[in-house]
């Protein structure tokens, strides 16, 4: 059963189409890159999977179900912005996740935060941008979810933080879960991707395994991306 499936998924904001008849299916146990320039529909797709938006036409299914309360139990979402109240303490967030998510591994999260030197009493607003991003990632990856949706996890962070984030994603890999990473910074992450889905103007223009793409084209994913999206 595909962990994430889109069938002719269409989302229009007024007259503007953000996604147009997008179709694809992702199997469990993969690390998938959702690639495309800004405005290609990546964030829209992820929001649809999280029930933050509803489709105009077509459907999106998470583990065979329409996005709702049941899917939220198995999806762990890292949005591209900070979603913690600045006045929250790190410890408060730990409590919140423990309370609301059955699959949250508080011990793991505490370990990760300790490794980063983030103390529980600290307020989020006192952390630097890079540290905030890493903290958010700790919470998201400490859930034993079936689907991880990471929206631009490495955009706007320094290279060291980037390495940490990628290493964390790899470390948390498990065969029953799929990680979807949406990004436009391909070169840094293509090594860890199993598959790529290219979005362009709301349509799926390519979906194949990364090694297959490299064999076929003799190019890196990054190079193919530049070609596909040449202005």
């Amino acid at each position: 059963m595909a962990i994430l499936e889109a069938k002719d998924l269409t989302k229009r904001f007024g007259q503007t189409p953000a996604l147009e008849k997008a179709s694809f299916a992702l199997e469990p146990g993969r690390i998938v890159g959702l690639l495309g320039p800004n405005g290609s529909g990546k964030t829209t797709l992820i929001k649809l999977a999280n029930e933050l938006l509803v489709p105009t036409e077509g459907e999106i299914l998470v583990d065979g179900m329409k996005p709702g309360v049941e899917t939220k139990k198995i999806v762990s979402y890292l949005p591209d912005c900070m979603y913690f109240d600045d006045h929250m303490k790190v410890g408060d967030c730990l409590e919140l996740f423990t309370d609301f998510y059955e699959d949250f591994d508080a011990g793991k999260a505490q370990e990760m935060l300790a490794q980063l030197g983030i103390k529980k009493e600290l307020l989020f607003k006192t952390l630097s941008k890079g540290t905030k991003e890493k903290a958010q990632l700790c919470f998201v990856m400490s859930r034993h979810a079936k689907l991880y949706l990471l929206d631009e996890p490495i955009g706007g962070v320094d290279p060291a933080a980037r390495d940490y984030i990628l290493a964390t994603i790899l470390k948390n890999y498990n065969e029953d879960a799929t990680v979807v990473i949406s990004t436009h910074l391909i070169a840094d992450i293509e090594k860890i991707l199993d598959e790529v889905v290219f979005l362009s103007w709301g349509r799926v223009v390519r979906h194949q395994s990364t090694d297959e793409l490299r064999e076929q084209t003799g190019k890196s994913v990054d190079e193919v991306f530049r070609e596909v999206y040449k202005c």
Partner: peptide, 17 residues
């Protein structure tokens, strides 16, 4: 597989292959 994949910073599926 996991250890090697982490060391090489590649996808475990690829390392497995």
């Amino acid at each position: 597989v996991r250890t090697l994949a982490l060391e090489a910073e590649v996808n475990p599926n690829t390392m497995q292959k």
